[in-house]
Design a protein around this nucleic acid. Structure first.
Length: 925
DNA sequence: TAATCCCGCCACTAG
DNA sequence: CTAGTGGCGGGATTA
């Protein structure tokens, strides 16, 4: 019809043509990689980001490498394709790449890799430079890791030469070219939570070039991101990157709008008539009025800055609006699940009464586009809804929920501030609103930022902005998540079942077998709630600590500002309970030892690394722990970065074994207070990298599974556990890219035995749990929202922050981060700035509560919070600045390189960012 | 076959 | 007019 068909056979478009070539660039190891990827993918869930990631990883890695080569090396040959990488490097600045030759086309051409190129790539990968770049791009890292992994793998190497030659350019599969993957790559280039200071400008051309796609594709991504205010158009071809700072708000607004729109009703309506795709009537009756107003609102909302209304003309941009509406549907949905057809119907109606079937199809197509982007943002994930009819494709919201409530308010209005900051342009329309809203938040006050922008700040003066933001967001997220989780859980008994089952399984089995793999969807589904977020509940006092990870896996820990926030939070999801959100971390092991007594020890074998780490960290004793299977204990010990690379890639694990020597608070197992000691470690990997994550997961799982470890762990745990009622769990988080699964695995095989009974879990309603190690026993952990807090004694529900604060350290790993340290080469911290976020050491003021002060970590890098509590020496990290520390700094920075390394290693080298939160138990005091 | 969704033509606009 | 945007839907891939 309209279209002219593109020439079917040949790739018509000049640019597009690239397709084949691109691959080539990557091609070298690709095959092998692919294979791996596939496997991983398979394991994971198909489709989603994971796959993408996986794929990407391979590609990215290659690309990066290439890219690097290119950039550094010189434009060499074929690599042109690489542009993709370039983008990464450039990431923000468009300028950088002068390169962009022909973009895609070139890229495509570049297909053939030379062996050298491969080598280069590998090298580059190793090289710090790459890391640097990567830093910025959190995602990249993952990629790199993967690369590393790949590289590690013999295959790659082999491939590199030979295969590369193959060039297989195999044309990238469609998946590889998917918008979701592309989006991931895109997102990888920018920090989820850019520092206010850093303003990132996105040049569409650059990005397109670097990513090796047509600009058109970038528009698709940007439009959706724009609808979420993650980016804003600055100028022609230029977009400003805001990251997720304002996401909460945006979502909140969307939720509000959605409510106003009565989307929920509409959805219900459609559901009833599902079958009739074409019925539009409904729309008419319902909405009509709404639409207009709504749309506008949305527009405003979305584009505050939009130049002028005029500009909007076209601008109404269906894609943006559709995106917002689509998001709204999720936000207003009780189930948080929206089927494509219903969404399409609703959108059609709004937009048009008409209803051609064709139109419907078109909408669906668009929705897929949007969904892909949202999936990459880890806001939704695909699921299937079985209805009368049968199975229908649907998407489930896995992003924050309920921010609308108090929480949202509480949240700092990042968006507002953020936007302005980031952008140079002021967006009047939007801002005003925000301010108003903000006004509501008593807890915050606006403060001028360095930028000149005002931000809300938590009441606490101390907290750095970042924190605040983070906290807000986190809080809201947490709350939302908690709420969502509950809802889901409640609603979906199934999910619960799944979750609990899985959890149980995992716990019980501890198998190496990843929980998910088997049932990707299910698992995902089940996990969703948690999905990327994990909450821990803390005492009311504590402000929630959130870890967010954006895509990146940034983790932020935010202490809530105390009461105000807490209060707000409470209402929503978890009353009283502070949460810990662990976002991207691929995996966590939490445990705390209550008393000093931890047995640190044994674990040594494997975990020595960890242990050391933990030790280094301070009091942490070590619990042994985990790591990707790949890691070997030895390795762990070994500083060698390399292994880590491998390992890292595979599975980042983290373990922390803190010892709580100090945990005075902690003491009682059951008691929340005990929690204090909990240290969490997260290892993470790169959220983005699916492979890595999976690997990590697997590894983790395996590790756990492994008898030795188990034993060690168990032993320790058990010991502790004896004391403590609660078992330790291993929480594994998937990378952001991933769907954000979170797992909780019991450290011991028998979770039940441990104390955790499935039932308990169920009772908790929390999809995810973080578990305190046995050691933690005293330490409470998180539970999810616990709503009911079935948790028995202790901690039910929460592990109060206080506890945490008290003695424990909390280590949270974020995906992203990573320490540059040891392996640095492979990993690097992306956003330094971000990472730093942290908690203030002193934060924990009182043991009891974690005050808002409590450190918050944001940013990719892992941060560790330490609480002074225990006598133990703090790790360098802890030492560091109050706020954040990046864990991963180089070892040297840390002070103990070795330790770190190990940690890293344990985590994976790569693992990206990890954040730790240590809360000194008493120390604060 | 159905579900996805890539690809890129082409209309509309801004500059 | 040209370049930037982005709607749109054919049809290729996947599942």
């Amino acid at each position: 019809m309209v279209k002219v068909d593109a020439p079917p056979l040949s790739s018509p478009t000049p640019r597009a043509p690239a397709s084949p070539p691109r691959q080539e660039g990557a091609s070298f190891g690709r095959r092998a990689m692919e294979v791996n990827c596939l496997t991983l993918q398979d394991l994971i869930s198909p489709r989603q980001p994971r796959l993408e990631f996986v794929i990407e990883d391979g590609e990215n890695a290659q690309k990066e490498n290439i890219f690097v080569d290119r950039s550094r090396m010189a434009p060499k040959t074929p690599m042109k394709n690489e542009p993709i990488d370039l983008s990464k490097q450039k990431t923000y600045t468009p300028e950088r790449n002068p390169i962009t030759p022909v973009k895609l086309a070139d890229r495509t051409q570049a297909e053939p890799w030379t062996p050298t190129a491969n080598l280069k790539m590998l090298i580059s990968a190793a090289s710090p430079d790459m890391r640097d770049r990567e830093k910025k791009k959190e995602l990249f890292r993952p990629i790199e890791n993967k690369d590393d992994a790949f590289s590690d793998s013999p295959q790659l190497d082999a491939v590199g030469d030979g295969p590369v030659d193959d060039l297989e350019k195999q044309p990238l599969s469609r998946k590889q070219k998917s918008l979701g993957l592309l989006c991931q790559k895109f997102l990888a280039r920018y920090p989820s939570y850019p520092l206010s200071t850093e303003k990132t400008t996105i040049s569409l051309d650059e990005v397109a070039t670097s990513l090796g796609v047509e600009r058109r594709r970038i528009y698709d991504i940007v439009n959706v991101l724009e609808s979420l205010h993650m980016v804003s158009r600055v100028a022609k071809n230029q977009y400003g990157w805001h990251g997720r700072h304002g996401l909460q708000k945006t979502l909140k607004n969307l939720q509000r709008l959605g409510e106003e729109q009565k989307y929920e009703e509409q959805m219900a309506y459609f559901h009833q008539k599902e079958l009739d795709l074409v019925e539009y009537k409904f729309g008419e009756r319902k909405r009509e009025g709404f639409l207009d107003s709504q749309d506008q609102q949305l527009l405003y909302f979305s584009e505050p800055d939009c130049t002028s209304a005029s500009a909007n003309s076209r601008k109404d941009k269906s894609l943006r609006i559709m995106s917002q509406k689509f998001v709204m549907l999720f936000l207003v949905s009780k189930t948080k699940i929206v089927t494509l057809d219903v969404a399409a119907k609703i959108l059609i109606e709004e937009s048009q009464d008409v209803a051609d079937h064709s139109k419907f199809k078109t909408k669906v197509r668009r929705l897929y586009d949007i969904a892909n982007v949202l999936t990459s943002l880890v806001l939704i994930k695909k699921v299937h809804v079985t209805e009368e009819r049968g199975r229908k494709p649907a998407f489930k919201w896995i992003g924050p929920v309920d921010f609308s409530t108090e929480n949202g308010e509480q949240l700092v209005d990042v968006s507002t501030s953020a936007l302005p900051e980031l952008k140079t342009e002021p967006r009047s329309p939007f801002q005003p609103r925000v301010k108003q809203r903000l006004a509501r938040h008593s807890s915050f006050h606006m403060i001028p930022t360095s930028d000149g922008i005002k931000r809300k700040v938590s009441s606490e003066p101390n907290s750095p902005r970042r924190r605040e933001q983070g906290s807000d967001e986190y809080c809201s997220k947490i709350v939302n998540l908690a709420a969502a989780c509950r809802q889901k859980i409640d609603k979906d008994s199934q999910n619960r079942g799944c979750i609990s089952k899985k959890m149980l399984r995992s716990s019980g089995k501890l198998h190496p077998v990843p929980p998910f793999p088997g049932h990707p969807q299910d698992s995902e589904y089940c996990f969703h709630p948690l999905s990327h977020q994990v909450f821990s509940v803390a005492p009311a006092d504590l402000s929630p600590v959130h870890l967010q990870n954006g895509l990146n896996g940034h983790v932020a820990l935010v202490p809530t500002p105390t009461a105000s926030r807490a209060e707000s939070l409470k209402p929503t999801a978890l009353p009283n309970q502070p949460l810990v959100y662990v976002p991207s971390t691929s995996l966590f092991m939490l445990y705390g030892s209550l008393q000093e007594g931890h047995p640190k020890p044994e674990k040594g074998r494997d975990t020595p690394e960890v242990a050391q780490t933990s030790c280094s960290s301070a009091e942490l004793s070590a619990l042994p722990f985990v790591s990707s299977h790949k890691r070997r204990p030895q390795q762990a010990q070994e500083p060698a970065a390399k292994r880590q690379s491998t390992e890292i890639e595979d599975g980042p694990l983290s373990l922390v074994l803190p010892k709580l020597t100090d945990l005075t608070d902690v003491a009682s197992p059951g008691s929340v207070a005990s929690v204090d000691t909990m240290p969490l470690e997260a290892f993470q990997e790169y959220p983005e990298m699916p492979l890595a994550q999976e690997a990590a997961r697997k590894t983790t799982m395996q590790y756990l599974a492994t008898p030795k470890r188990k034993n060690s762990l168990r032993n320790a745990d058990i010991e502790n556990s004896k004391d403590l009622p609660q078992p330790q769990y291993l929480y594994v988080q998937p990378a952001p890219g991933l769907n954000g699964f979170n797992f909780l695995l019991p450290a011991h095989q028998a979770a039940n035995a441990v104390g955790l009974s499935p039932s308990q879990l169920t009772s908790l309603h929390v999809p995810c749990m973080v578990v305190p190690s046995t050691a933690l026993a005293p330490v409470p952990f998180f539970y999810s929202p616990a709503i009911n807090s079935p948790v028995p004694s202790s901690g039910p529900v929460n592990f109060g922050l206080p506890g945490l604060r008290s003695s424990n350290q909390l280590l949270i790993g974020s995906n992203m981060v990573n320490p540059k340290t040891s392996k640095a080469p492979s990993v690097e911290p992306q956003h330094p700035g971000q990472s730093p976020v942290n908690l203030s050491p002193g934060v924990s003021r009182s043991r009891n509560t974690i005050t808002p002060d409590s450190p918050i970590c944001m940013g990719h890098p892992v941060t560790i919070m330490k609480l002074p509590q225990s006598p133990g020496p703090m790790t360098p990290k802890s030492i560091r600045p109050p706020y954040c520390e990046t864990f991963f700094k180089t070892p040297g920075s840390l002070g103990e390189p070795v330790t770190w390394r190990r940690i890293e290693g344990s985590q994976r080298n790569l693992s990206s960012a990890q954040r730790r939160l240590q809360i000194p138990s008493g120390s604060t005091d």
